[in-house]
Design a protein around this nucleic acid. Structure first.
Length: 616
DNA sequence: AGTGAGTTCTT
DNA sequence: AGAACTCAC
């Protein structure tokens, strides 16, 4: 063992086992483990109440583990992470900083800048992969481009060689001495007094912390993994429940993968068909988590713009009354309302419900998907920026392999499929508890007598549908036509040299935008390889033959640019690569014509909002 | 063999 | 919601 001193900068890797940064530091000498809480640098993605509760619990847990290994976890609250790191370096005389990499759009930029500043001061900085099976830059197609469909991506991953992981935790840590302005876990302010009472219930159902994560994994693999295929059929059932642990890195995804693979081998030998299917499906959801990081890394604008540029001109309905009704579970569609109330009360909902309620927000209410995504971020116990970005892009028609933009699922039909007995609805909407199963997912069709017998008065104790579904369908198509019109107009005006057609003054994406320069450097910073940024062909582009096949609303109905502007030969301009092929200079003009979507999410105060329902 | 109804799948 | 599939005639 050497005598070097290393700062181990913990972030979302709150575990001892299979923690490459911690292991590297411990191998070489003395360690100084630190967790730095800097709300300012979280920007608009400051974690919500339940997520912060989890973090707090997990930090206490990690602190105890590190202590038993001989080193103290130093907690620091600061306005500048880099300043805090420099304090640590100064007081300990450390020459090195190590951490495990993160891939969300905020951290990518922040970590890059911090690394650069430290290196400039002569400090050795090393980052490791503690979050993924494969680094995003290891997986490209045969042309060297980033995948934009999941199946091809995951297929490639599954055929890659994975290096074996050592699960041996460091058995002893040699602490580096030093005094900094440290805080107690309370002083970090992860939980204020008003939040404590709401949070106290969380501890009954969840046990954060890396060793609890291990137990949860074992329990899942031994007893529930085999039934994983069934959990997608009904919304009342639970899934692996590992997502919050994975978010904060209390569980190593490599360990999960290996543990599940072991079962896979066993069941393959036994020719256990259900087991094999379950494993495939579970690994696929692990793959989606990987893919979410992959997309964020390769297309780091996806938290503010859709991957396909089709939604750029979509006329969102920035209606705050509707947004509030959705949040509070008062849309009049029982399955949606039940889901939103479970989310509100517990911070966790089944993936299927996530798809249903988010589709409803986007396709029926025409709310900007970023509003919904922000609300999920604020309320989910397992809130995870990358996964939520992927999920919302998937349902809003922004991915080549996601739901189509014009697809609008009926909550009534979804309800009869995934909650056939109505148990889930009854659990979360007590006002409908006595409703007969036949009408539970569409009480508006029930006769007055049936409603009366069930004690339901539509519009009084349970809302009427916020909008009729057929009308919603019409509105959605109108919006799509409008989008095409604006897109066509923008295209003709652009080739004309004017950019005045669609200017959205409500667009504050300026604040979120990641400078192109940083993007380029970010890659070299992490990998020393160059990265070809590409955006896939617009699914809704007139030039995409696949779209012609898929859409029934084509040909004559879609506005033709050359018809709108007949003295110009503008047809055939491909929109491919538009978003990133432009240089920083020319993109400023394009930015003006960004989106019809209001990017600022309206303020809502969760504590002042009437809580529809208490407790679990 | 061809058709239509029912089932299952979808990141 | 819609495509792809199965199965019974």
């Amino acid at each position: 063992m050497g005598s070097s001193k290393t700062i181990v900068w913990f972030r979302r890797d709150l575990r001892i086992e299979d923690n490459p940064a911690l292991a590297a530091a411990a191998r070489d000498g003395c360690v100084f483990p630190v967790f730095i809480w800097c709300p300012k640098e979280e920007e608009q993605f400051y974690p919500g109440r339940v997520s912060r509760w989890w973090l707090k619990e997990s930090l206490v847990h990690l602190g105890q583990s590190l202590k038993s290994l001989g080193a103290e976890l130093v907690l620091i609250k600061t306005h500048s992470t880099v300043a805090a790191l420099l304090d640590c370096i100064e007081t300990t005389g450390a020459t090195r900083v190590v951490f495990n990499r993160l891939y969300d759009p905020i951290s990518l930029v922040r970590d890059h800048n911090i690394k650069e500043e430290l290196v400039e001061l002569g400090i050795s900085v090393q980052s490791y992969n503690g979050d993924l099976l494969y680094e995003p830059w290891e997986i490209y197609d045969e042309r060297g481009h980033a995948f934009t469909t999941f199946e091809a991506y995951w297929d490639k991953c599954l055929h890659m060689q994975m290096e074996p992981v050592s699960h041996l935790p460091p058995w002893r840590l040699v602490p580096a001495a030093g005094t900094v302005m440290k805080s107690s876990v309370e002083e970090l302010g992860l939980e204020d007094e008003a939040e404590k009472s709401s949070n106290s219930l969380l501890g009954r159902g969840w046990s954060p912390g890396w060793s609890n994560a291990d137990k949860a994994l074992t329990e899942f693999a031994e007893h529930h993994l085999i039934d994983y295929v069934d959990c997608r059929l009904k919304v009342g059932t639970s899934t692996s429940l590992l997502s919050p642990y994975l978010h904060f890195g209390e569980l190593s995804v490599r360990k999960v993968f290996q543990c599940v693979q072991l079962k896979q081998l066993l069941w393959a030998k036994e020719e256990n068909l259900k087991g094999k299917e379950s494993v495939t499906l579970f690994l696929k959801s692990i793959g989606l988590r990987e893919y979410s990081r992959y997309l964020c890394f390769n297309f780091p604008f996806t938290h503010e713009r859709s991957l396909l540029s089709n939604l750029k001109y979509f006329p969102w309905n920035d209606n705050q009354v509707r947004f509030k009704a959705w949040r509070q579970g008062r849309t009049g569609y029982p399955l949606v309302d039940a889901g939103m109330r479970e989310l509100w009360a517990t911070g966790w909902i089944h993936n299927r419900i996530r798809v249903i309620v988010s589709s409803f927000a986007v396709k029926v209410l025409l709310l900007p998907w970023r509003w919904g995504m922000k609300y999920f971020w604020d309320t989910l116990l397992d809130a995870d920026l990358e996964s939520d970005i992927l999920g919302w892009q998937y349902i809003s028609g922004s991915l080549p392999d996601g739901h189509e933009l014009e697809r609008l699922d009926s909550p009534e039909i979804q309800g009869s499929r995934f909650d056939p007995e109505g148990e889930y609805v009854r659990q979360w909407l007590p006002e409908l508890a006595r409703m007969p199963t036949e009408w539970i997912h569409h009480p508006w069709d029930a006769t007055i007598a049936v409603l009366k017998a069930a004690g339901v008065e539509l519009g009084i104790n349970y809302p009427k549908p916020i909008i009729d579904l057929d009308l919603a369908r019409e509105r959605l198509m109108e919006a799509i036509f409008k989008m095409w019109e604006l897109e066509a107009a923008a295209r003709t005006s652009n080739t004309n040299g004017t950019n005045e057609v669609v200017v959205d003054n409500t667009d504050d994406s300026e604040n979120l935008a990641i400078p192109k320069v940083v993007l380029k450097e970010k890659v070299t910073c992490l990998t020393n390889s160059s990265n070809d940024q590409r955006v896939p062909t617009n699914q809704y582009s007139q030039n995409n033959p696949a779209y012609r096949k898929r859409s029934k609303y084509m040909e004559d109905e879609r506005p033709q640019p050359d018809k709108l502007h007949n003295d110009d030969n503008v047809v055939g301009t491909s929109r491919k690569d538009e978003d990133l092929s432009s240089t920083a200079e020319s993109s400023s003009a394009k930015k003006q014509a960004t989106s019809r979507c209001s990017f600022s999410v309206p303020q809502y105060c969760s504590s002042s909002e009437a809580k529809p329902m208490q407790g679990v």
